[in-house]
Simulated scan of single mutants.
Amino acid sequence: MTGEPPDPFTIPPVLVLSTGRCGSTMISDLLNRHPAVLSLSEFMVLLGQEAFAHRRLSGARMWRILSRQSPALRAMIRDAGVMEEVLYPLGTPGARFGVEDLPPIAMTALPHLTDRHDALFDELATVVPAQPRRDLAEQYRFLFAHLGRRFGRRVWVERSGGSLMFARKLLRLFPEARVIHVFRDGRDVAPSMAGHPNFRVLVGAIAAYRRFGIDACRNFERDRGRLANVWLERALFPFLDARKLAARPTLADFGDFWSRLVRSGQAALSALPEERVLDLRFEDVQARPREMLDRMIRFIDPSLADAAWLDAAAAVPRPTTRRKFAALPADEQRALTAACAPGLAALGYAI
């Protein structure tokens, strides 16, 4: 808009898309060490359905989405506990927010960027609501540009766990974005999901929706959010016990969920030119970190090649010495492999 500071980003944006529980958090952490990258970790996923539901909205509405927990997020925290990805120092001396009023963007995204996250939250609480009514994508672009100027970065990279659930929506908002597709063998992802309270609630909720005749996974295929989904969430989640939801899924249920995400993601990414997608297999990052991370940063932009960053980043990944899948009983291995089979085939893993 006229009169606004110039956009600081000289490199097209990047979306890190994944099923979750496949090493994408590590990728966010490594990118955060790069002096030119604005690493937005767990930004979109914690905003809930309303993150994509509006066509146009005011700055005040945008700030409510950023600063108030959705019913689903509130229920997960209330019943399943705070997820391990939350970086805000809950319960420490001087912590301004508690579990019940912790704003979504203050959970991970802001502490990921700075240890002065409360001050940054206050800054945004003034800047964002003052913005005029405009398209949803433009509200995000304004916010990201503000953060880019604030930290002196040249490119923004958004990474949320399980972001293949809303890949089409992100690509519609940011059609020029390049994509880093991080993936891992589903037979290792599913046990990790099963040990994560929020994935347990999510997969349990999908089963609960199914009992009402609603296939929640169909939402993965839509490139727009819907206010109807926001209203449905508000109507159902206050009455759902997240602990009961989390207790229901089997390991095979997580394998099936992983496969559906993979196949949905493959369909979304197939519409992009090959040069705009980097497939980053987590097992390769573990085995050959320097090669794969150098490939990743040059994919974002060749000008970002940085020997000091690469030296530090390549020292972080470590090969997994023991697969959880191998420790499962034979019958569980068979059931999980069968559930994961469509996703494994799509990604080129041996079955």
Rank of each mutant, 00 (worst) to 15 (best):
P104E: 13
R78G: 04
M107L: 09
G91K: 03
M76G: 03
M76K: 00
H54N: 13
Q49G: 12
F43E: 11
S70N: 07
S41Q: 15
I105S: 11
D79R: 00
H54A: 14
A106P: 02
M83A: 14
S67R: 07
F43R: 01
V82M: 12
L66P: 00
R96C: 07
M76W: 00
P71W: 05
R96W: 10
R74V: 02
R56A: 14
A51T: 12
T92Q: 14
A60R: 15
L66C: 09
P89A: 07
R78A: 04
S70M: 01
G59F: 05
L90V: 05
F52H: 11
I105D: 10
R61L: 14
R78Q: 06
S41R: 09
F43D: 08
S58L: 06
A51M: 09
P104I: 04
R64P: 03
G59I: 06
G59Q: 05
G81H: 04
E42V: 02
D79E: 05
A75H: 02
M62S: 07
V86F: 12
L87R: 12
L40A: 06
L90R: 02
G59H: 03
R78H: 11
L66V: 01
E84H: 13
L57E: 01
V45T: 08
M107Q: 14
L47N: 09
G91Y: 01
M62P: 00
V86M: 05
T92G: 10
M107Y: 06
P89K: 08
A51L: 08
E84M: 06
P71T: 04
R74I: 00
R78N: 03
W63V: 01
F97Q: 04
H54Y: 15
I77T: 11
D79V: 00
A51D: 10
R56T: 15
G48W: 04
L47K: 05
S67Q: 01
A75T: 14
E42M: 06
I65F: 02
E50Q: 15
E50G: 10
E50M: 10
R64I: 01
R74N: 09
L73V: 08
R64D: 14
M83W: 05
E100T: 12
I105R: 11
